[in-house]
């Protein structure tokens, strides 16, 4: 399909299964969502390695549910060669999820939503 002039956002299945099966169709950016736990960082590192191995696109690491500077430092340390974008742990996101609502509708000014709005702007400017 021709997607020129359009933005395609794909939400892949958890884990790296889909990544390992993707062909060589590259994308502009691959956003790897990582939480500040060793388990999540380990999985994210493997995803980044697969993306690099298959030359799928430029990796941006989204550090999600960040509660402290230590949380962010832990993720930055694991991804020294990648841009890391922090998204704070935010009760507004949890509340929206509980209600089955889009956080952008229920809490557009919440810190996490603001961080994602800024990220979207950056991606549009650079992709």
């Amino acid at each position: 399909m021709d997607f020129s002039g359009q933005v395609v956002v794909a939400d892949l299945e958890a884990g790296v299964g889909t990544l390992t099966r993707l062909g060589d169709a590259g994308v502009d950016k691959v956003l790897i969502i990582v939480e500040p736990t060793p388990k999540s960082v380990e999985v994210g590192s493997r995803a980044a390695a697969i993306v690099a191995d298959k030359s799928l696109g430029e990796v941006v690491v989204v550090a999600s549910r960040v509660q402290s500077d230590d949380d962010l430092a832990m993720i930055r340390k694991a991804f020294p060669d990648h841009q890391v974008v922090p998204v704070p742990d935010d009760p507004a996101i949890v509340a929206a999820d509980r209600d089955g609502q889009a956080p952008l509708d229920t809490a557009p000014d919440a810190p996490a939503v603001q961080a994602l709005t800024a990220l979207a702007g950056d991606l549009l400017a650079t992709a």
């Binding site: 884990g15 790296v16 299964g17 060793p38 388990k39 380990e42 999985v43 493997r46």
Partner: peptide
């Protein structure tokens, strides 16, 4: 049976 690390932790 997860191909990614998890339960061991």
């Amino acid at each position: 049976s997860d191909p990614l690390p998890g339960m061991a932790y």
